[in-house]
Design a binder for these strands. Structure first.
Lengths: 222, 222
DNA sequence: ACCAAATCTCAGAGCAACCTCAGAGCGCGG
DNA sequence: CCGCGCTCTGAGGTTGCTCTGAGATTTGGT
């Protein structure tokens, strides 16, 4: 399997159309995962790592527009494309206002869809938010830490959120209380911060996050 | 009007909530100026003198998160607090990543908001950015001594506290008794001061703290 | 030079802060 | 229903900080 492949999440309940799209995208050497309802789309969108989402507008369990809205409201910045049978101006406006980058009306031309997808990916990678970690970079959108000449490291949602806060101001010490309040608001145990620092260190090595005893953590080493 | 009052800029478009907050803050003897959209917030934030900003997240003219971001990008370091109806982890992370110090979810408890505001102001004013050591600098917040062209030296809590007192007035001699009283309150042995001077010299070299026999210690060669 | 007082040096006990990790709970997909 | 990954909990084990005390070294006075 191509490690460099673009990962596309397809949310489409029409099995025939879904299969067609999977074949089309796979032939263009995208790596496609296909789910069939809005809830599954929400879960994968929140937890998986994606370069783009292709979402049908009419879906069981959770509407396409609503799915886009919820993903956006949870901070997901991955580019999303809506597919729809309806094509009125109002539909388009509503679809795009929900946060989708593009809007394709069925029946669509395969080449056009592929072109739009390429445009989406191109636009996005230009503006992909990267946080500097001193030598390495945190790609918040795909929740990966990229090191020159090494495999990317994938982070869970909480790991990423914690690292984001710590990395926001390199050198500044963040107290456990602050980190807990910002990232683990609905956790009871203040130990959650410690545990996730431990997870991050296990994945990224011990030089990345340094402890300042009695105060908190900061981004190392400098 | 109290000249010592803390000046707070409130940016909140909901007139009822705004008035409530103004009353709440004024009762705590803050000096409050209230504006009702993001553009006005931007203007006042850039031109006025403030001890803290309290900003609603959903605002006409300019979003709260974007307002924070723009103020930060123009070099405004005043502590800022975001108010929001939404409360997911991703929201919080986004809000705080924009540069806000704290994030309060509506509906909020008045006392909690006041407590957080106090914490904000305390933190900000306590953060004495850097103490001059004559060539080097002591960063109290991260407990490090920074030297031009050298690795930072990390200090323990007591080491930092001791150096802070000695460095407060360069050249002035501090007696063991004073240092012991201010830093080693609950230590029985008066030797603790000597020991920590020894630790500091071991980390920072012997030129930094000088002994004045019979009197105490003072900073630097001078 | 010699002595006594002041100061320095450092090993180690005690302890709180911190790290580590197994596992329970949960939501989801197979 | 089971397995899987993510999240959070709680219980040790470990580390590093703090302070003590005692011997070594320096200082200033005679």
């Amino acid at each position: 399997m191509d490690l460099d492949a673009r990962r596309v999440l397809l949310v489409e309940d029409d099995k025939r159309l879904s299969e067609l799209l999977v074949r089309l995208l796979t032939a263009e050497s995208y790596e496609v995962v296909s789910v069939f309802d809005g809830q599954a789309g929400l879960h994968h969108g929140l937890t998986g790592r994606w370069d783009a989402l292709v979402i049908d507008r009419t879906l069981p369990a959770l509407e396409g527009v609503e799915l886009v809205r919820r993903l956006r409201s949870r901070g997901i910045t991955t580019p999303m494309m809506l597919l729809t049978a309806r094509g009125t101006t109002e539909d388009r406006v509503e679809g795009l206002d929900s946060g989708a980058e593009d809007y394709v009306v069925k029946p669509f031309d395969s080449d056009e869809l592929l072109a739009r997808l390429r445009a989406l990916l191109r636009r996005h990678t230009d503006t992909s938010p990267m946080i500097d970690l001193g030598g390495r970079r945190l790609d918040v959108a795909s929740r990966r830490v990229l090191s020159p000449g090494a495999e990317p490291v994938e982070l869970s949602a909480q790991e990423c959120a914690l690292l984001r806060v710590i990395a926001a101001n390199p050198g500044r010490v963040r107290s456990r209380e602050e980190l807990h309040r910002r990232v683990f608001q609905n956790a009871d145990s203040p130990n959650a911060v410690d545990t996730y620092v431990y997870y991050l260190r296990r994945k990224l090595g011990h030089g990345m996050i340094r402890t300042v005893r009695g105060l908190g953590y900061r981004l190392g080493p400098s």
